[in-house]
Design a protein around this nucleic acid. Sequence first.
RNA 1: UCCGGGGUAGCUCAGUGGCCAGAGCGGGUGGCUGUUAACCACUAGGUCGCGGGUUCGAAUCCCGCCCCCGGAGCCA
Length: 446
Amino acid sequence: MRGEICGHENNLRHMTAPTPISELASRTGSPVVVKGWVRRIRSSGRIAFLVVRDGTGEVQCVFSRADLDDATWQTLTAAEHESTVAVTGEVCADKRSPIGVEVSANSLRVLSGSPEFPIQPKEHGIDFLLEHRHLWLRSPRQVALMRIRDETMRAIRDFLHEDGFTCVDTPILTGAIGESAGTLFETEYFDLGTAYLAQTGQLYVETAAAALGKVYCFGPTFRAEKSKTRRHLTEFWMVEPEVAWMDSDGNMDLQERMVCYVAARVLDRCQADLGTMGRDLDRLAAIVPPFNRMSYTDAVARLQEAGHEIEWGSDLGAGHEAALTEGRSKPLFVHDYPKRAKAFYMKENPDNPATVKCNDLLAPEGYGEIIGGSQREDDYDRLLARIREEGLPEESYGWYLDLRKYGTFPHSGFGLGLERTVAWLSGAQHLRETIAYPRMMTRITP
RNA sequence: UCCGGGGUAGCUCAGUGGCCAGAGCGGGUGGCUGUUAACCACUAGGUCGCGGGUUCGAAUCCCGCCCCCGGAGCCA
């Protein structure tokens, strides 16, 4: 452990502690030990190049036959793609290096071999790559995506905490409750019958809003939908803020501020990784307030003018969303959808009872819906009526109805899909690359 | 579930009725070079998804099945 500093073994470990590759540029002329994985090797009769990465960066280590003993030279032949090595040498400035320095090596230890590493520096099919996801993660593009995802999550949490939110974790194992049955994963739960994996934390986080005012949950959610598109996973992460005394307009204000904050943070802190992804940075710089807000009714009118076949009252399809966001550089709010197209808990619009106070946020460039949000129905009788209309099991919603029975209050919230947001910000074409181990209809391993 | 595309070497693919099924990459051996997905030569490597049918002859044509891909629906 960290506290144990005495003992021969720990001293040894300390002595062989490697220098992170990210620090080499500031150590020109110094002797160093670099430990990491071999990305590439080019060896020959007189000189050899070993590109080593360690998670902080990568560096080329140069081995000159004339400067090495026979044993070290022989060892080079055992260094394979993705084997682990310890290289001892001196940091030398070199204009040809992308990081300005390379290591003039005088010794090499192969710590572990890596016979025939499956992933080559070439094109592979997606099925093969997913079958080897545990190894694919080592690729530069995947590393960049994991860092962008990490920064996106940090930015979301930082924004919410700076804004006075408290994180309240909601259960993953639940009884029969959620937006709709039929798309829930089931599992046996002792003597209590069937439990379901949560497809949202919203109903629970609503109750926490009555305790803490501004709250959010952030965790994995599960949808047993038989979706096979680039925009769907069966397990994905969602952040769900919920705010007491906030109406639908305030809800959109909050979404706008959060999305802009996150985009700015990723742009600021992930430039190199966005570069690895080939992302156009101007696209992220354009994500600033305000976002356009369009009512569902206006959206349908626009679509009809553009020749789309859509009736007022039916939900927007992928083609409609693409048409509405085409040519835009910022996300677009579409609000006040027809009641019959949306979930039971959304608050009826007093100005137009056929619609509810809700909104989607559609990302540009075809990334689609990254947020769904609404003001919640806070009237006991109306909510009960909606539960009955939808044919939901009334007895399962007792505690949810209680929230309207004991000191009800207007409140709103939304769910932002992490993977869709990361895909959009990074320019990834498919959600499956934005999470380390994507869960899809046809894949549960590795 | 529906629609479309696909399944040939470890990987990416070419091969649409006719000798023993090919290339590049990767592996192995040797050579060579301040190299950048290095290069050159040699070499090993195949149940052409599975089953049946047509034919003198099937990777190739027909039927059935399985699997994968991404689009729709659904949603974040």
